[in-house]
Simulated assay, not measured.
Amino acid sequence: MDGMFGRTKKKSGPRAVTLIGKPGCHLCDDAREVVAKVCAETGAVWEEKDISQDEELYRAYWEQIPVVLVDGEQHTFWRVDPERLRRALGA
């Protein structure tokens, strides 16, 4: 809690969303559309990472792609619910 204002402190700056997927993945294409739209609406920044180019991501998430992280923490996988993502981003 921030004693001066009586509210919980949030991470400074915009929220960050990471989409982890691979080329040719139709679920990844669907997730990209949802992530791009929700981030545009909420002011969050987002990036996409190719699981086939990162061995650590491959080991961690191969059976779950697409995976969405919010501020570095796993938010969801396979299908992205736009309303749930908006809530996670504080919108």
Rank of each mutant, 00 (worst) to 15 (best):
D29G: 05
A40R: 12
P14H: 13
D71A: 01
M1S: 08
Y58H: 15
E63V: 11
E47A: 14
V45Q: 14
C25N: 04
V38A: 03
L57M: 08
W62I: 09
E83R: 03
E56A: 09
I65H: 00
R15N: 15
P82F: 00
K37D: 13
Q53T: 10
Y61P: 00
D50W: 05
Q74E: 15
V45L: 15
G3L: 14
V70M: 02
T18F: 03
S12L: 12
S52L: 13
D29A: 09
A60R: 13
R84D: 15
T76Q: 09
R84V: 01
T42P: 06
T76Y: 02
A60V: 08
E73G: 01
V17R: 01
V38T: 02
Q64G: 01
G6S: 05
A36P: 08
P14W: 06
V34Q: 02
E55L: 05
V45S: 15
D81V: 02
H75M: 01
F5A: 03
G6D: 03
W62F: 10
G21H: 06
V67I: 02
T18K: 06
V34A: 13
V68A: 03
W62T: 09
V70Q: 11
R15K: 04
R86D: 04
W62H: 13
V45M: 15
E55C: 08
V67D: 01
M1I: 07
L19W: 11
D2I: 09
A40W: 04
G21V: 03
E83Y: 03
I51K: 01
E33C: 10
Y61D: 03
V34M: 12
R79L: 12
R84Q: 14
R15T: 11
K37Q: 15
I65S: 00
R15F: 09
V68Q: 09
F5N: 10
T18M: 07
G21I: 05
L69N: 04
T18Q: 05
K37R: 13
V35F: 06
E47F: 03
L19R: 00
Y61L: 13
E83M: 01
Q64I: 10
L89C: 05
E63S: 14
E63L: 06
L69C: 00
L69S: 06
W62N: 13
P14L: 10
V45F: 05
K49I: 15
R79A: 07
V70H: 00
